[in-house]
Amino acid sequence: MTEPETPADDYDNPWKTMLAHAFPELMAFYFPDAHARIDWTREHSFLDTELRQVVRDAELGKRDADALVRVTRQDGAEQWVYIHIEVQGQRDADFAKRMFTYNYRLYDRYDQPIASLAILADLSPDWKPRGFDLQQLGCTHRFRFPVVKLLDFTDRLHQLERDRNPFALVTAAHLYTARTRHDPNARYRFKRRLVQLLYRHGWTRQRVLDLFAVLDWMMRLPENLEQQLWQDIQALEGAQAMRYITSVERIGRRIGWKDGQLAGKQEGKQEGKREGKQEGQAALLVMLLSQRFGPLSEDTRARLEQADAAQLERWAKRLLDAATLAEVFDEH
């Protein structure tokens, strides 16, 4: 009997989601020196409109997960930080040039010095671009940027599992996903282990839900193993008297599960289509709003989760022109 194929992996969206929801933790985990220079008691904001304009002008093609963020340094000065996460499975000869181009175009357009930081999630162990140089007739330009390579964490997987920073878990999930690309049973075991860790770090319910969504999005499994995982989570939550991952119940209904049993095919299929589509619309809108306006409050997330399809469609259309989050939800 042929083993089921592991579904195609999706890296970009989980990274985009976590970058928007936990930016200070990202900086603390990957760039601790830069994190120490930022005053995190002051609000930080995502400058998505500014970044989109520069990227469009530069005509540099596909972007993966990246962000432009305004922060305040410890000395009180404002600083713009450009984060680029390169998610790919091979070298990119133009990567350093793109980092340089974004940096100087942002500086030229907004007259702001830009801190460019790179996270490389590719699978080429000997590729780690750190800068871009230009030289002509005695004139030189030397651009250097800090870079983090996720493969460098491979020997620290057990340490990552004990670390309370959410990006330790995201990094572990990324490495386990790459390691189990052709082994769905091994991926199931690693995914189950990481889900168990969600209950052990004392995170808030919203943080648990956010991280579960990342794990589920990143570490895709064949349907039979997904169903087994839902049963495992139900047992885990029952044993610990914690009902954090309520989204699991909705996902379970999407594949026909009710009260731990596989419901009738037709009922599960019809219900799954309706709920799956609506939940997908809500999840997409959460991601787009987070990227446009920064991390969303729990009240806003709850409002999106409880909205019907018509409301979600109406808000999605307003997102195109809205200058503020309030304008998206303004019913007048």
Rank of each mutant, 00 (worst) to 15 (best):
T246I: 09
Q159K: 14
W40G: 01
D48T: 14
V147S: 01
A307E: 02
H332V: 08
Q261G: 14
D163M: 02
V69M: 07
V54I: 11
Q53R: 13
L151Y: 02
K277D: 12
S124H: 15
Q90A: 15
F145G: 09
L211P: 00
K317I: 07
A213N: 09
F23D: 04
T140D: 04
R164M: 09
P125R: 13
Q159W: 09
Q136D: 11
R105L: 12
K191H: 10
D210C: 03
E237Y: 06
E279D: 14
D210A: 10
R254P: 05
D12V: 15
R56Q: 14
D66Q: 09
L120V: 03
E78F: 01
K258R: 15
K97I: 12
A67E: 00
D210Y: 05
L197M: 12
R253V: 01
D111R: 15
F31A: 03
Q88I: 05
W127Q: 06
A302N: 06
M1R: 13
R56L: 06
S290F: 03
Y199N: 06
R179T: 08
M1S: 11
H201V: 04
T300S: 03
F212N: 00
G202M: 10
A67S: 08
A58C: 11
F167E: 10
M18A: 05
Y82G: 01
Q79M: 14
V328I: 06
R314F: 13
E50C: 09
A326T: 03
A67H: 00
Y176L: 15
E271I: 00
M219W: 10
A283T: 10
W230C: 12
W40K: 09
F329D: 00
W217Q: 02
Q159F: 04
V208P: 06
R105N: 14
E279L: 06
P32D: 11
H332Y: 03
R52N: 07
D64V: 04
S290N: 04
E223H: 08
I233D: 01
R164K: 12
H174K: 15
D232C: 07
A310G: 06
A22H: 13
V71N: 04
D92I: 06
E43D: 11
G61F: 03
I83S: 00
S297W: 09
D163R: 06
D216T: 08
E5G: 03
G238K: 11
W257K: 14
L117T: 00
M99E: 02
A302Y: 07
Y244K: 10
R63A: 12
R314I: 02
R105Q: 10
